[in-house]
Design a protein around this nucleic acid. Structure first.
Length: 584
RNA sequence: GCCCCAGUAGCUCAAUGGACAGAGCACCGGACUUCUAAUCCGAUGGUUGAGCGUUCGAGUCGCUCCUGGGGCACCA
């Protein structure tokens, strides 16, 4: 919001420094890091350090302060700046309240629901996320992926990119055949009950148990796999029917979570084209074919002159059946051919880091120039207390719907006591927004490189740094605006602003840059932190500054500030995929 | 053996190489006749795993260790 001013002042400083024959060091502006102050700052340590290297004997800190003082004197007080100060080697420029407060509030007002949205970049980015396996349960371990992926999509979109949300469904493989075997043997003819996800998951648990415990099962499953491989119509039709059950269950979950996809890919669709690529690789001499004794593989280290880095990637089983890699190679190519992507992001957990590096390297060896535009966003997994990995096959899972149901019921209890006058339906809607917000926020408010230990109490804690706190701030703002009725169109920035007001406006003004930063680093955490700080600043303001009862000249301004705060919070929450209720 | 990630307050986590390392939870003490207390205020709490190095400046970068987690040819 202040780019122009920054540039002008940067030019003035550079000119002054060169005139004074002070070494040119890059001037980069940062926010003044102290609460209740707003403005930009830069330091002169680098320039002073360069001088020292050229033989000056003044200590760097002291010299930096000298330069800062000189610059401050030279600048005077530029338009839009109320105070210029040299402090401990830093030059601090404080914004003047009247012009900037107005500018910030008017910008939010003008842009409304789009406040914070960046200029179009012209870049097209595909984000592949969720990637569930059919015939398995959908549990809290999968939740992190969906929450992270959908937030990343929104962030990239808000930063000005075109985003294609892709999902890659694992609809075939040994796990599916195991499930079909179990269904045929123990559940034949059954129709899925209402609680479909659980039912599907339970059959999978049963299948896995028999498969592991009874050695007689494996040959039966293999035989079934062979039938599928030669497209036995009975098996194919059973596969199609049961696969559809899973897909419908996923759709329910996606609706519950409020996420959507633009493009679905299926493993079963890229299998044949994958095998075709394997043939090409063999023909080009890039893959070693040791069938039938061994597999088809690529000695990646050998080809890229590395040692123990890329290892070996097996791309086809010795019996000629496909592997995950077979299909992923094909999928990557299809994505770029279909959409001419500028970037292809894979949201996949950290355990597959080496594997995805192998895929990207293979694509490079195949000569695809876009291989370098593939990016793996690795996130750490969700474990159960005691460092227990969540595994669909042993059934020790927390189902997503159970989590949502429990969270909603706890939220509903609070809503009912606080808002007894609204309809049950409204109460439920609010509880739902709060529950899902809390769940999503807890996943987004820690770095993706950190392991999440799922804990019921922590997941259902609505206090402190959590979505309900942020939502509540917006609700309070909403309440003030509702009681105020019409917001006066004419208003003035008071001559004196409270420190909390300054902090609040400051945080609102940074929203666009925070969105850019969040996109640049692909870190939703940047926004989850910022929106929390915004909410906290608003709560401070709420407690310290009366709005409705304020003097008329202050009242108009504060109402505007309340409206801008609500908008900023609402926009950030929506990027994170969190609803902002009107009441709580 | 090799590679990747994490290690910050009692616990869970923040911190574009910059100013005094910040929040929440927990604990202790306060604030509802007020625009909703799902809130706020105050107190307590730190050798940023250890050690060298680079730098004017290191939680952040480099090296060597320690601890924990993960990965390393026919699972996905």
């Amino acid at each position: 919001m202040f780019e122009q001013l920054q540039e002008t002042i940067t030019r003035q400083i550079s000119a002054f420094l060169s005139q004074q024959e002070i070494p040119a060091a890059p001037i980069d502006w940062k926010w003044i890091p102290f609460a209740g102050q707003w403005g930009i700052a830069t330091s002169f340590f680098q320039a002073a350090s360069l001088e020292a290297r050229q033989g000056s004997h003044i200590p760097v800190g002291e010299r930096a302060q000298q330069i800062a003082t000189q610059v401050a004197e030279h600048l005077g007080t530029p338009e839009g700046i109320s105070k210029v100060e040299a402090v401990r080697g830093y030059l601090n420029l404080t914004f003047s309240p009247s012009s900037f407060a107005r500018q910030v509030i008017e910008t939010v007002q003008r842009e409304g629901l789009l406040f914070g949205k960046g200029q179009l970049t012209g870049k097209r980015i595909m984000v592949e996320y969720s990637q569930p396996n059919t015939h398995k349960a959908f549990h809290v371990g999968h939740l992190r992926n969906v929450v992270l992926g959908s937030a990343v999509c929104n962030i990239l979109e808000w930063a000005g990119n075109e985003v294609i949300r892709a999902n890659y469904i694992g609809d075939i493989g040994l796990h599916v055949i195991k499930w079909l075997w179990c269904y045929l043997k123990y559940h034949n003819g059954e129709q899925p009950p209402e609680d479909r996800v659980r039912w599907i998951g339970e059959i999978y648990v049963q299948a896995s148990r028999y498969y592991e415990e009874d050695p007689a099962v494996e040959p039966e499953v293999r035989a079934l796999f062979a039938r599928w491989d030669r497209r036995d119509p009975d098996i194919v039709s059973l596969w199609e029917k049961t696969r559809q059950w899973s897909l419908e269950a996923f759709e329910q979950i996606y609706q519950l979570l409020g996420v959507h996809f633009d493009r679905f890919y299926f493993e079963s669709d890229v299998e044949d084209s994958g095998k075709e690529i394997v043939r090409t690789l063999i023909k080009k001499g890039l893959a070693c074919d040791e069938r039938p004794e061994g597999s088809v593989y690529i000695p990646l280290d050998e080809f890229s002159g590395t040692k123990d880095k890329y290892r070996v990637l097996v791309i086809l089983r010795s019996d000629g059946t496909s592997l995950y890699a077979t299909k992923d190679l094909s999928l990557a190519i299809q994505k770029f051919e279909e959409y001419q992507l500028d970037q292809s992001i894979y949201i996949v957990d950290v355990r597959q880091s080496l594997y995805l590096q192998q895929i990207f390297k293979t694509l490079e060896l195949l000569g695809y120039s876009w291989a370098k535009q593939c990016y793996h966003l690795a996130y750490e997994i969700v474990t159960l207390p005691g460092n227990v990995t969540i595994a669909s096959r042993d059934g020790a899972v927390v189902l997503l719907e159970d989590l949502v149901a429990e969270a909603t019921s706890r939220a509903l209890e609070i809503v009912q006591t606080k808002n007894p006058e609204i309809s049950q339906q409204q109460q439920l809607a609010v509880a739902h927004a709060v529950a899902l917000g809390a769940i999503r926020y807890s996943m987004l408010s820690r770095d993706s490189s950190k392991v999440v230990t799922f804990d019921w109490d922590a997941a259902l804690d609505f206090n402190g740094q959590a979505a309900p706190y942020i939502q509540y701030a917006a609700v309070r703002a909403n309440s003030i605006l509702r009681k105020a009725g019409e917001i006066p169109a004419k208003w003035q920035v008071p001559s004196e602003l409270q420190p909390v007001e300054i902090t609040l406006i400051d945080l609102i003004s940074r929203v666009p840059q925070e969105i850019q930063k969040s996109a640049r680093d692909i870190k939703p955490l940047v926004l989850s932190t910022h929106v929390y700080e915004l909410a906290r600043a608003f709560n401070d303001f709420y407690n310290q500054c009366p709005v409705l009862q304020a003097d008329p000249e202050v009242r108009g301004f504060r109402l505007q500030l309340v409206a801008a705060s609500r908008q900023a919070i609402r926009n950030l929450l929506s990027i994170l995929g969190i609803e902002t209720p009107d009441i709580m």
